[in-house]
Amino acid sequence: MTIPIRLTLNGKPHAIDLDDPRITLLDLLRERLGLTGAKKGCDRGQCGACTVLVDGRRINACLQLAVSLDGAEVLTIEGLSEGDALHPVQAAFIAHDGFQCGFCTPGQIMSAVGLIREGRAGTDPERIREGMSGNLCRCGAYAGILEAVKDASARMEPREDAA
């Protein structure tokens, strides 16, 4: 027995027949839809490597049952840029060496995109550090991640003048 759901995935509508109610969004993406950009680092909401945007908000895909997301809009790292052109956050991660092994990187980047959309941090280093603390990086690329998010944030929204 399958459970039909609809998702808008990276801008395109998908009708999906779930073969199991236990499937998480992460395993749906990775094991059934071939979208392996989001990574499984802990599978328990403790590392952030699986971060994607659902209805515009960053969440841990590993803790979401896919069946519960019927009708949702999902944006993954694969849908962030078109063709060879990089999204400003992606370009900033390269320029500032915001990763080493690259495993946590798709999650870091989607988290940064979410953070910038939330408008919570601007270019304040301390607010960016806090806002990015849901994404572990074992290689220790945090300094580059901070610089990358700061840089991309400044490019993506009007600079906030200190009140």
């Binding site: 392996t36 790292i77 370009a91 390269i94 060496d97 495993f103 990187t105």
Partner: peptide
């Protein structure tokens, strides 16, 4: 900058899993 950077930031670098 890293030559593997573009693949990694696009989620296209294929790790084993």
């Amino acid at each position: 900058t890293r030559r593997d950077g573009p693949l990694k930031v696009k989620g296209q670098a294929r790790f084993a899993a």
